[in-house]
Amino acid sequence: MPLSDTIDACDLAHRACTESVIHGMQQGGHSAEWELIQLLLDCADINETAADFMLRSSRLHHLICQVTAEINDKCASACEKLSKEDVRLKECAEACRRAATACRKTVKN
Rank of each mutant, 00 (worst) to 15 (best):
C10W: 08
L12W: 06
L12G: 07
A13T: 05
A13F: 05
H14T: 01
H14I: 00
R15P: 01
R15C: 10
R15D: 14
A16V: 05
C17P: 11
T18D: 14
E19F: 07
V21L: 01
I22G: 00
I22M: 03
H23Q: 13
Q26A: 15
Q26V: 11
Q27D: 06
Q27L: 07
Q27C: 07
H30E: 13
S31V: 15
A32Y: 00
E33A: 11
E33W: 08
W34Q: 04
E35S: 09
L36W: 07
I37V: 13
I37P: 00
Q38F: 00
L40D: 03
L41M: 15
L41Y: 08
C43W: 00
C43P: 00
A44V: 02
D45N: 15
E48S: 11
T49F: 05
D52T: 09
M54S: 01
L55Q: 13
R56C: 12
S58N: 05
L60Y: 12
L60G: 04
H62L: 13
Q66A: 14
T68G: 07
A69S: 10
A69N: 04
I71T: 08
N72G: 11
N72R: 09
K74S: 15
C75P: 01
C75M: 01
S77E: 15
A78W: 06
C79V: 10
E80M: 10
K81D: 09
K81Q: 14
L82V: 05
L82E: 05
S83T: 06
K84G: 14
D86H: 13
R88L: 10
L89R: 08
L89K: 09
E91H: 09
E91L: 11
C92K: 07
A93C: 12
C96S: 14
R97F: 11
R98W: 05
R98P: 01
T101I: 08
C103E: 10
C103L: 05
R104W: 08
R104H: 08
K105Y: 09
K105I: 12
T106Y: 07
